[in-house]
Protein backbone atom coordinates (compact mmCIF):
# COMPACT_ATOMS: atom_id res chain seq x y z
CA UNK A 1 0.00 0.00 0.00
CA UNK A 2 1.03 3.59 -0.60
CA UNK A 3 0.77 6.23 2.08
CA UNK A 4 2.24 9.59 2.92
CA UNK A 5 4.79 9.85 5.72
CA UNK A 6 5.90 13.35 6.66
CA UNK A 7 4.65 14.60 3.34
CA UNK A 8 6.54 12.06 1.23
CA UNK A 9 5.20 8.95 -0.53
CA UNK A 10 5.94 5.75 1.34
CA UNK A 11 5.45 2.13 0.29
CA UNK A 12 4.52 -0.48 2.90
CA UNK A 13 3.31 -4.11 2.78
CA UNK A 14 -0.42 -4.46 3.52
CA UNK A 15 -1.45 -5.21 7.08
CA UNK A 16 1.30 -3.23 8.82
CA UNK A 17 0.40 -1.36 12.02
CA UNK A 18 1.76 2.03 13.02
CA UNK A 19 4.47 0.38 15.13
CA UNK A 20 5.82 -1.35 12.02
CA UNK A 21 6.21 1.94 10.19
CA UNK A 22 7.83 3.65 13.18
CA UNK A 23 10.48 0.95 13.47
CA UNK A 24 11.94 2.31 10.26
CA UNK A 25 11.00 6.01 10.51
CA UNK A 26 11.80 6.58 14.21
CA UNK A 27 13.90 3.72 15.59
CA UNK A 28 14.23 5.58 18.92
CA UNK A 29 10.61 6.43 19.80
CA UNK A 30 11.46 8.52 22.86
CA UNK A 31 10.27 12.09 22.39
CA UNK A 32 8.36 11.19 19.25
CA UNK A 33 4.67 11.85 18.55
CA UNK A 34 2.48 10.67 15.70
CA UNK A 35 -0.57 12.05 13.94
CA UNK A 36 -2.62 9.85 11.62
CA UNK A 37 -4.86 11.73 9.20
CA UNK A 38 -4.73 14.84 11.38
CA UNK A 39 -5.33 13.25 14.79
CA UNK A 40 -2.75 12.39 17.42
CA UNK A 41 -2.31 8.67 18.09
CA UNK A 42 -0.91 8.03 21.57
CA UNK A 43 2.12 5.76 21.86
CA UNK A 44 0.13 3.09 23.72
CA UNK A 45 -2.18 2.81 20.71
CA UNK A 46 0.52 2.46 18.04
CA UNK A 47 0.58 -1.39 17.98
CA UNK A 48 -3.19 -1.62 17.56
CA UNK A 49 -3.47 1.08 14.91
CA UNK A 50 -3.62 -0.43 11.41
CA UNK A 51 -2.42 1.59 8.43
CA UNK A 52 -4.43 1.83 5.24
CA UNK A 53 -3.84 2.87 1.64
CA UNK A 54 -3.72 6.67 1.37
CA UNK A 55 -3.14 7.34 5.07
CA UNK A 56 -1.31 10.55 5.96
CA UNK A 57 1.16 10.03 8.79
CA UNK A 58 3.13 12.75 10.57
CA UNK A 59 6.02 11.74 12.84
CA UNK A 60 7.50 14.61 14.85
CA UNK A 61 9.96 15.35 17.61
CA UNK A 62 11.48 18.33 19.44
CA UNK A 63 13.83 20.44 17.36
CA UNK A 64 15.84 23.59 17.99
CA UNK A 65 13.54 26.58 17.70
CA UNK A 66 12.56 29.93 19.22
Amino acid sequence: MRLSVNGRPHELPDGIALTGLLETVAPDPRGVAVALNGSVVRAAEWPATPLREGDMVEVVTAHQGG
Partner: peptide, 20 residues
Protein backbone atom coordinates in the same frame (compact mmCIF):
# COMPACT_ATOMS: atom_id res chain seq x y z
CA UNK B 1 13.93 26.62 27.09
CA UNK B 2 11.66 26.64 24.04
CA UNK B 3 11.81 24.04 21.32
CA UNK B 4 9.90 23.64 18.09
CA UNK B 5 8.15 20.51 16.86
CA UNK B 6 9.27 19.22 13.50
CA UNK B 7 9.05 16.13 11.31
CA UNK B 8 11.63 13.52 12.27
CA UNK B 9 12.59 13.23 8.61
CA UNK B 10 14.00 16.77 8.87
CA UNK B 11 15.56 16.52 12.30
CA UNK B 12 16.64 13.09 13.43
CA UNK B 13 15.17 12.10 16.78
CA UNK B 14 15.72 12.60 20.42
CA UNK B 15 19.06 14.28 20.91
CA UNK B 16 18.08 17.88 21.73
CA UNK B 17 15.39 16.76 24.12
CA UNK B 18 17.73 14.27 25.78
CA UNK B 19 20.34 17.01 26.30
CA UNK B 20 17.81 19.41 27.85
Amino acid sequence: VTVSVRRTSDTGTGSLLATL
